[in-house]
């Protein structure tokens, strides 16, 4: 079996590709929304882990799920936004596609996602 020549490109593709790639430095590279918020997301995730650990260690697991959720939200919002300037987003308003796009752009792996799902169940 020959290794090459089984795939090809449209005619003149490589000349056009070279020109297109060489024009990249002229474009202004703007950070994406995810790149801008990712340090904050990492910060929030670390806090969530710490709060979760504290809850676990100090035996707060007896509280209801609703109470725990409220604790997380109020603690995180106070830590991240002491002046209350950020409006909380209702997740119910997000479509499945928006959630998928966010997860894909966040570079979370399937394994991490499965772990989150597991943690949610137990």
């Amino acid at each position: 079996m020959t290794r090459k020549n089984d795939i090809f490109v449209p005619e003149g593709y490589f000349q056009q590709l070279e020109q297109r790639l060489q024009s990249l430095p002229q474009r202004e590279v703007k950070p994406t929304v995810i790149q801008r918020v990712s340090p904050w997301l990492a910060y929030a995730a670390s806090l969530a882990v710490l709060v979760g650990l504290a809850n676990f260690i100090f035996g707060r697991s007896a509280a209801t799920e609703e109470d725990n959720t409220w604790d997380y939200v109020s603690y995180l919002s106070q830590s991240l936004d002491p002046d209350g300037q950020i409006e909380l987003v209702e997740t119910a308003d997000l479509t499945d596609e928006e959630i998928r796009s966010f997860l894909i752009a966040s570079n979370i792996s399937v394994e991490q996602l499965a772990l989150l799902d597991y943690e949610e169940d137990y």
């Binding site: 079996m1 089984d6 090809f8 997860l103 792996s109 399937v110």
Partner: peptide, 28 residues
Amino acid sequence: KLRAALHFASADDLVVRRIEADPYFNGT
């Protein structure tokens, strides 16, 4: 892989389908 998992599909199958439908393939 993540995109496929969120749609309950296999990423490998997506790539395989692209190879099957590739108009720029002229091999055996």
